[in-house]
């Protein structure tokens, strides 16, 4: 099954590469085909963090326009077209949120990672009871938008951390550290929320 999915992804990536080459040769119709293939992915990603439809449409269009203008810089060695497109989308969303002043800097201080065990974190983040899911939802919504995007890219879109590092234009080591921090942050928030409920 996984191999089939992998094969399908490979075929998709090859088709995308062919379409990109066709566009660079001057065939604008191929770009329309690329849009149709990836519009839903980009839209879904953008809409998760930009709920207003008008803004979402604008940002989505900006993502594809940027992609069209930057096609010459697309390198199949670094990533497939879908991942490359998500990279553009990630930065476009961040830029929009920054302009809207909704992006806040989240400090890594105030959380002593050594006091939180990996087992405890795994236990909370793996608890699928409805109550815990509600608390987890609240905890995730309290994260900064760029961190929410990281979580979404990993847990929903299924991108490995290495690909996410490419999308967000960070080093692998940075992303690894960030992810560890994020998981523990979510755990800490859930525990706090539970404590508040009891109080």
């Amino acid at each position: 099954m996984e191999r089939q999915m992998g094969n399908r992804q490979t075929v998709t990536a090859e088709e995308d590469a062919r379409l990109v080459k066709s566009i660079l040769d001057g065939n604008r119709v191929s770009f329309r085909m690329l849009i149709n293939r990836h519009a839903a992915t980009v839209r879904m990603f953008v809409a998760r963090f930009i709920p207003m439809l008008e803004d979402e449409e604008e940002v989505t269009q900006d993502v594809f326009m940027k992609a069209y203008e930057s096609l010459q810089r697309f390198d199949t060695e670094k990533a497939n077209f879908k991942t490359w497109l998500l990279r553009i989308a990630y930065h476009a969303v961040l830029k929009h949120l920054r302009n809207e002043s909704r992006l806040e800097l989240v400090e890594l201080e105030g959380l002593r990672l050594e006091t939180i065990s990996d087992e405890a974190t795994d236990a909370v983040l793996g608890d699928t009871t409805s109550h815990r899911l509600t608390l987890l939802k609240q905890a995730v919504s309290q994260l900064a938008p760029d961190d929410q995007m990281l979580i979404s890219l990993y847990y929903y879109d299924g991108h490995p951390l290495k690909e996410i590092a490419y999308i967000v234009d960070r080093t692998d080591s940075y992303l690894s550290s960030r992810f560890q921090w994020l998981r523990k942050k979510i755990y800490q928030t859930v525990i706090k929320l539970e404590r508040n409920e009891k109080d």
Partner: peptide, 23 residues
């Protein structure tokens, strides 16, 4: 980064899927 570093975290995956459905 550890090659085997993966996080299952099923609860988070469910939340993300729910959010995607709403979108």
């Amino acid at each position: 980064m550890k090659k085997t570093e993966t996080y299952h975290d099923e609860a988070l995956r469910i939340i993300m899927r729910q959010q995607a459905e709403e979108t």
